[in-house]
């Protein structure tokens, strides 16, 4: 039959699906730019320890606040450390901590949201009111409290950030679940007698996965900004670890005569955030989700 010709699209492997999405993303100018920036940063984070020209913690009082030169590309800071070295290394910690942080946020926020959306009723009411209560607490205050109680180690920062950024995902996941929950295939699964876990796993997750992933990607960029703010305030990673937030905080008083010591980390941080944002948008468009019509929660 002729009809069969256009329906030749067979089940694709996961690899084929992912590469198709990436190609679609890169085919848009904004997606291409975002992806390139993000990939550039990720690669840099991996190779920076091997290509860094100087030791990031080598203090040299004779070289304080040198302007950019052939020797020190981005100049030196107030302790005579090479700004280029510190900038390319500065993204590593932030990228790692926030990546795993968003993963945790996605996991607990997504699953709790889906669960609440599915069971509804009193459980949903109670859980959502608790989430609302947490949403009303300024995250930075809560983070400061946690960090001052438990310290600034990675083991504390990742779950703490993951927790505070997951709250919003709960709502998105719950809303996305509500969209599919009324569909007949869920009712059909219920009528057959599938368990809640089976319904979540087989029926709901494949349908809300995209929305949650996009939300997670957006949260990643927000978390990056949040993490850098913590460092800026002195509650992120501790010196002398190179970190953009910390570098900006240290050098901001010298901005008027040593602009180079603050410009490099600012460009690093903002380009990464823009890169992730553009990528997340392109990702959403490639999946067919239009973020512009949906208000972020």
């Amino acid at each position: 039959m002729k009809l069969d010709n256009i329906y030749q699209e067979e089940k694709k492997s996961n690899f084929a699906k992912v590469s198709e999405i990436i190609i679609t993303m890169a085919s848009r100018p904004s997606g291409f730019i975002g992806l390139s920036i993000l990939i550039f940063h990720v690669i840099l984070a991996f190779i920076s320890p091997y290509i860094a020209p100087y030791d990031f913690k080598a203090i040299n009082p004779t070289l304080m606040l040198q302007a950019p030169s052939a020797e020190y590309w981005f100049g030196t800071d107030d302790l005579g450390r090479d700004v280029f070295t510190r900038t390319i290394l500065g993204g590593r910690t932030a990228l790692t901590i926030t990546f795993f942080g968003s993963l945790i946020a996605l996991l607990w926020g997504g699953l709790l949201g889906i669960f609440c959306g599915l069971v509804g009723g009193k459980t949903d009411d109670i859980v959502m009111r608790i989430v609302d209560a947490f949403l009303s607490i300024p995250w930075i205050l809560a983070m400061l409290l946690i960090v001052s109680l438990l310290g600034t180690s990675t083991e504390v920062l990742i779950p703490a950030l993951g927790f505070f950024y997951g709250k919003g995902i709960v709502r998105v996941a719950r809303a996305a679940t509500h969209d599919v929950i009324a569909k007949d295939f869920i009712i059909s699964a219920r009528a057959r007698g599938h368990s809640n876990i089976s319904i979540i796993w087989h029926e709901i997750i494949p349908n809300v996965r995209d929305a949650i992933l996009v939300e997670g990607a957006m949260r990643w960029s927000w978390m990056l900004l949040g993490f850098s703010s913590l460092s800026f305030l002195g509650f992120g990673v501790s010196p002398p670890t190179p970190d953009w937030g910390l570098m900006i905080s240290n050098a901001r008083g010298l901005m008027s005569f040593a602009y180079w010591s603050v410009i490099a980390p600012i460009v690093g941080l903002s380009s990464l955030i823009i890169g992730i944002n553009l990528t997340a948008d392109a990702f959403a468009k490639a999946l067919g989700i239009d973020r512009s019509t949906k208000a972020p929660v």
Binding site: D184, F185, I187, A191, R192, H202, P206
Partner: peptide, 30 residues
């Protein structure tokens, strides 16, 4: 098991992210 439903709109009653095989396999597995 003894009572099964068929719905009005097959667009809504079939999970769009499952293949036909997965759809029919569900009651058989369950």
């Amino acid at each position: 098991r003894i009572i099964q439903l068929i719905f009005q709109n097959p667009d809504e009653s079939l999970n769009p992210n499952h293949t036909v095989e997965e759809i029919i396999a569900q009651p058989l597995k369950l």
